[in-house]
Write a protein that binds this DNA or RNA. Structure first.
Lengths: 242, 242
DNA sequence: TCAAAAGTGTTAATGATACACCCATGT
DNA sequence: ACATGGGTGTATCATTAACACTTTTGA
């Protein structure tokens, strides 16, 4: 899950190549969500393509003929930002005729969830990738704002039904951290007692029997997500809802 | 909304053409749901392509370079089965390397909802398209069963939140017809009184002040869907749930 | 001793579920 | 008169929402 340096052909170079063969190119764009303990962030690049120069763009690449869509998304995460073993889900495809200035590119969007954002400051990422607060992004290159909105919409729906939020946190976390995360994703405040009641009633958290260290207030209990218990619940037809 | 006869190049012919240009072709496949008053059906074709000869396949075509994805889906519905003005929603994309025997084809799936299925018996449709009960389909050509399942899954989720079921019924319908439809989609029985309580509480039905004719039992009131009222509810943040 | 976040229960309101009988029509 | 589906209300249970104070730690 550490970033590495890369020297992949970027989409601009590759596009010229494929245009010799194809009337339609297919790409994958990844909406990479991260959580810094306070805000929900997205990993973006500064576009160097006119007419979107210096606007934020998502991280994507053309799909190669010998990889399927999920593989392409995983490759992009690995090659471009060094992430492996991440939660990944396809959102939808965007195929407007004019969405890409260099030609006809249909893109399949994915979102992924990354933990320990604070352990991967932007300086360590292959530049110029940068974590930006989701709610600060008003405009992006291409149709990427639309893609981001679709991904965020999907994440909000998912997070109400299945416990994927854990992918954005450290393995051991406090209930307040979990609540803050949900508040960031849903962009609304939640009642502390009701939140804890629901979460603990669901019973897929395990008490680590440890406490926060060196905090200037009463230290909170640490919990971890028990995927076994979750699968048991899932199998019994249980629906997680916040 | 009437079927017409067509003479479009089918996907087999077109594929050979595009393979000269492209390493990846893009298609759209439509899961066309219809309701015959009793069962939820899907419109399928008999595949003529090895190794799937004589298995059911969905209705699809390659995306042309000068149409976007939604346009391609609408064109397919119009050209292949003569449907216009139908409810249409993108589901997801399928891109397995081996999903199509003739080469690399990534497909974007859509589902659409058709009313008056009983007014369009299969003889009127361009052959060999056929309406088949969703629950009778155990296997299809290509990965089309997987696509069907994804579409049905999506339809079930949507139908719990937004009133799209009306697209499968005549403009004027009885509450029992509506309930039967929901039962077909969700594949479960619903309590009559509770169903009516919820539906009428939502208040986007208008009483037509008419009754069923020529039925061998007490005639039921006819209602129609009032899209104005629905939009008003939608705007006020209301969530439709069954 | 103060600031800051952790932790903890009860009540009221709302929504979901279960359930049975009479009604209007055609045959 | 009978068969068929249409139409209606209430009571119970489960879920959600609102709400305030005490505890523990570091500074």
């Amino acid at each position: 899950m550490k970033p590495n340096t890369i020297s992949e052909p970027n989409i601009n170079v590759a596009l010229k190549e494929i245009q010799d063969f194809s009337k339609i190119a297919v790409s994958v764009d990844c909406v990479i969500f991260g959580y810094d303990g306070k805000n929900l962030n997205v990993l973006v690049l500064e576009s160097d393509m006119d007419p979107y120069k210096s606007q934020w763009s998502l991280i994507g690449d053309l799909v190669s003929p010998d990889e399927d869509l999920d593989q392409a998304a995983l490759r992009i995460l690995r090659e471009r930002v060094g992430f492996t073993d991440v939660y990944l889900e396809q959102v939808k495809s965007f195929g407007s005729l004019t969405r890409h200035p260099l030609g006809r590119v249909i893109t399949v969007s994915y979102y992924s969830l990354i933990s320990k954002v604070d352990h991967m400051p932007s300086a360590v990422l292959p530049l110029p990738a940068k974590w930006v607060n989701v709610y600060d992004i008003k405009k992006m290159a291409f149709d990427h704002k639309e893609i981001l909105d679709a991904a965020l919409d999907r994440l909000r729906k998912r997070v109400r039904y299945i416990p994927i939020g854990f992918n954005l946190l450290d393995p051991e976390f406090t209930l307040s951290q979990l609540q803050n995360l949900y508040e960031s994703i849903l962009n609304q405040t939640l009642d502390k007692r009701n939140f804890r009641k629901k979460i603990t009633a669901m019973d897929f958290l395990t008490d680590c029997h440890k406490f926060q260290q060196e905090v200037a207030h009463r230290p909170a209990k640490l919990y971890k997500f028990d995927i076994e218990k979750y699968h048991a619940l899932e199998a019994s037809g249980f629906v997680f809802e916040l």
